[in-house]
Amino acid sequence: MSDQVKTNNNLKPVDADQGNLDMHDAPNVMNPEHVAHHIVSPTVYLMIFGVLMVGTALTAGMAYVPLGAFNAPVAIAIACTKAVFVVLFFMHVKYSSKLVKLTVSAGFFTFLVLCMMSLLDYVSRAWGRW
């Protein structure tokens, strides 16, 4: 079964940017959002798994190191790094179209809007606890 991957004759024609050149695929050829399908190899998955494990150990370990105000930023930075690895490799965003990349960033952008615009109220309240 896995032999098929290695043979060259079932590869679709692609251009330099890995865009599909299959002419039976007219609407998609004209669609600039199109990117050919990639298979990420198990080696990559294993490496990412390793990175995530190291990140988990690091985040648990750093929690016991007294850093004062920096504990929270460090924890969030590690979590963000781990999330980025999952998104890029496990979720294939690194190999996906610009559209998917834009979609992912739109989600986080809107979440930031929710946080920032609400915080604008909370941090500036005369009667607040901030």
């Binding site: 809107t110 809007v113 615009m117 604008l120 109220d121 909370y122 500036s124 309240r125 005369a126 607040g128």
Partner: peptide
């Protein structure tokens, strides 16, 4: 549309500063 919602809350006790911005 995502940057204006607190104009529904001007008299509900949001801070004056954020009311101004919204």
């Amino acid at each position: 549309g995502f940057f204006v919602w607190a104009h529904h809350m001007f008299i509900m006790g949001v801070s004056n500063y954020s009311a101004l911005v919204f």
